[in-house]
């Protein structure tokens, strides 16, 4: 078994795909014609978005993400050599700042923003030796 997908349930799939293209420089792989599912080009593990209606169709009960209030207890993390530029780009495209880039004792540069739905997105440099 391998981790194939991270799927985030969102109010508006096309809007979220466009947001992730603008804020994090991802490319979309496709959006289903129903507008209830879309995938980004993220390599072996696909970042995807599904409409909240799809949760009910799948028999799931979810707590929708919202920018008003604490975030859900998980995050996604993008890795880049230029954290400062990626962080500024994310903010200029509408992300809320949480923590500006700073260097950790173990040598990694780390920053946090929240996306349009309030989900936590970390932008960090590769850990030395693990690139």
């Amino acid at each position: 078994m391998k981790l194939g997908y991270t799927i985030i349930y969102v109010a508006d799939v096309p809007k979220t795909v466009a947001f992730y293209e603008a804020a994090f420089g991802l490319k979309q792989r496709f959006i289903h014609e129903s507008n209830l599912y879309g995938e980004m080009e993220t390599g072996d593990t696909i970042l995807a978005f599904a409409g909240t209606e799809a949760a009910e169709m799948n028999g799931l009960a979810i707590m929708p993400n919202t920018p008003d209030g604490p975030a859900a207890a998980w995050e996604i993390c993008f890795v880049t050599d230029d954290v400062a530029t990626a962080y500024e780009r994310a903010l200029s495209e509408g992300c809320q700042p949480v923590s500006a880039p700073s260097e950790k004792p173990w040598g990694q540069t780390v920053s946090y923003v929240r996306d349009l739905d309030g989900c936590i997105v970390e932008i960090a440099s590769p850990i030395q030796g693990s690139v």
Binding site: Y9, A11, T52, E53, A55, E56, L60, A61, I62, M63, P64
Partner: peptide, 11 residues
Amino acid sequence: IDILHASGGRL
């Protein structure tokens, strides 16, 4: 209503 449906009525 949409949020209540997504939450399975649990909110």
